[in-house]
Write a protein that binds this DNA or RNA. Structure first.
Length: 524
DNA sequence: CGGGGAGCAT
DNA sequence: ATGCTCC
């Protein structure tokens, strides 16, 4: 499909490890090396913190958040009593009989708080990437560069820990990370003072290292990784599964090759690795083992899909399926209505109990949402639910012969292919022809959710709603531009030394498509 | 063994 | 378009 040019991997590796990158901002001092400064911000026991805010009486008590039979997370009081993440409720209560349990299966509050955090961070710097509900990456390179110009190096110091150092003087070499550590502290302070949440931060030259180093001092602390400590950080990992990007399946495959430790993977033959994983993945995971990661911080914008699911011991009759599905559809349709966008695709996913593949293995079927039904969803009409239920049952029959006995353990419903109102195709021009509610037209009764704009600081001549409906990468482009107040539209050039990943190429294509449109958002 | 959401391979 | 893999 998308074959990377040979040899650019070697380029990347020397680039990362020798710090000779020349692309990017060309305006800095000659001695300064243009490396990225990446923050990873990781909220402490996120669900537990949200519940302690909702009910402050829980603050001093051992608290566990329960989903089904699991403690998915717990506060630090509970941890002192030996309770841990992903412990069974039985084990946890055994360890700590006074443990207070709060059900955390409804994610609404967590989702809302999660987006508030992302939103807050975006108000400082648009390059924010979410990872799950409780982690955010930021690329603060430009912010660092700007501050460095106004700051004397002798006035700088690191905020928080520096990995494997008691203290560290700031010099020309590490000044950018030092500024990053100051920014990280400001972000954590902002999150705490406006939302009441604590968290950790990691500061490093790429996402992988920022995430890894963030976990070295917990909770509510931050750590900076200097480039020359990279090898030490990587070899401190106790197994390959600890490398973000290497999950269960990959670990098992590597184990079959005799690779268990990070060092094993670093030293293994790339050619052999390619045979097992293919070119792209082989290079990626071996680079990860070396602490090398050139993946960009990619703002996600509003979610591309909304889904709702429930799991259970057993469902084995059509009636039960209908009832559960209807419940899921009802809440999902409400969420969809608040979002304001219109879904064009519907997907039903199930998990069947089988003796062998008992844990995972989901199966799904999807179909277009009929025009009238889509409209009813966005309008919040309750008629949409029975219509969707009809679709669901059709899809269900495609997956399962319901004349045979069945045993489901999970149902999931999902709206995707979300488009900004109007039934016309995804034509970007439709952003300008459609009628949009403006801020003043919104009734106070309408929930102001994440995507409702107050967090986008758009110029006065731009309709914030229209802006909020633009594709995420276009939003990013514009935000970056407005912040810099300097009309430079970034178009990926051949001279860029970054590898052209699939994603880069996609967004490049999209970006150039949008160029004509973007000019409508610019002053003049 | 929870409840999402995203990217990639096929 | 669907499954796999990741967090």
């Amino acid at each position: 499909m998308d074959t990377d040019e040979e040899g650019d991997n070697d380029w990347d590796r020397s680039l990362e490890s020798d710090m000779l990158e020349t692309e990017g901002s060309s305006t800095d001092r000659v001695t300064s090396i243009s490396q990225r400064v990446i923050l990873h911000i990781d909220l402490d026991c996120f669900y537990a913190q949200v519940e302690m805010i909702r009910n402050p009486a829980l603050r001093n008590k051992p608290l566990g958040i329960q989903q089904k039979y699991l403690i998915v997370t717990c506060n630090y009081v509970a941890r002192e009593h030996g309770v841990n993440k992903l412990m069974s409720v039985t084990d946890a209560v055994e360890k700590c009989p006074q443990l207070v349990l709060v059900k955390g299966e409804d994610l609404t509050h967590y989702r809302e708080m999660s987006y508030k955090v992302t939103e807050l961070l975006m108000s400082y710097c648009p390059l924010v990437e979410r990872l799950g509900f409780d982690e955010n990456f930021m690329d603060v390179t430009e912010m660092v560069e700007r501050r460095l110009k106004e700051t004397c190096i002798s006035d700088l110091s690191f905020n928080g820990h520096v990995y494997k150092h008691e203290s560290m003087a700031v010099d020309e070499e590490n000044a950018r990370l030092a500024v990053g550590s100051v920014i990280a502290a400001e972000m954590r302070q902002a999150i705490f003072s406006t939302l009441g949440l604590t968290g950790c931060a990691g500061i490093a030259n790429n996402k992988l290292l920022a995430k890894l180093v963030a976990g070295t001092f917990k909770p509510n602390q931050q750590t900076t990784l200097l480039p020359y400590s990279t090898a030490e950080l990587m070899s401190s990992l106790t197994g390959l599964i600890k490398v973000p990007g290497i999950g269960y399946k990959t670990r098992e495959k590597l184990k079959a090759l005799g690779l268990v430790s990070v060092r094993d993977l670093q030293l293994y033959s790339l050619a052999d690795l390619v045979r097992e994983f293919g070119e792209v993945t082989a290079k990626r995971i071996q680079n990860l083992a070396c602490g090398i990661d050139d993946s960009p911080v990619t703002p996600a914008g509003p979610p591309q899909s909304l889904s709702d699911e429930d799991s259970f011991k057993k469902i084995s009759t059509l009636e039960e399926v209908q009832k559960k599905t209807e419940e899921l559809l009802t809440s999902l349709t409400e969420r969809m209505h608040k979002d304001g966008r219109r879904p064009h695709t519907f997907r039903l996913t199930i998990r069947q109990y089988t003796v062998t593949n008992r844990w995972f293995s989901r199966e799904s079927r999807q179909c277009p949402i009929p025009n009238h039904t889509g409209l009813k969803i966005t309008c919040g009409s309750s008629e949409a639910v029975p219509q969707l239920l009809g679709l669901s049952m059709k899809l269900f029959h495609k997956m399962l012969d319901t004349r045979e006995p069945f045993h489901l353990t999970l149902l999931n419903v999902c709206f995707s292919n979300l488009q900004a109102k109007s039934s016309s195709k995804s034509s970007i021009a439709s952003f300008f022809t459609q009628k949009c509610p403006t801020t003043t037209q919104m009734t106070s009764q309408q929930q102001v959710s994440m995507y409702d704009f107050p967090y986008f600081n758009v110029p006065a001549n731009v309709d914030p709603y229209v802006f909020s409906q633009l594709p995420a990468d276009v939003q990013r482009e514009l935000l970056t531009e407005w912040r810099q107040q300097k009309p430079v539209l970034k178009i990926p050039s051949k001279h860029s030394h970054k590898t052209s990943s699939t994603r880069d190429k996609k967004s490049a294509a999209k970006g150039s498509q949008c160029n004509n449109i973007l000019k409508y958002f610019k002053p003049n």
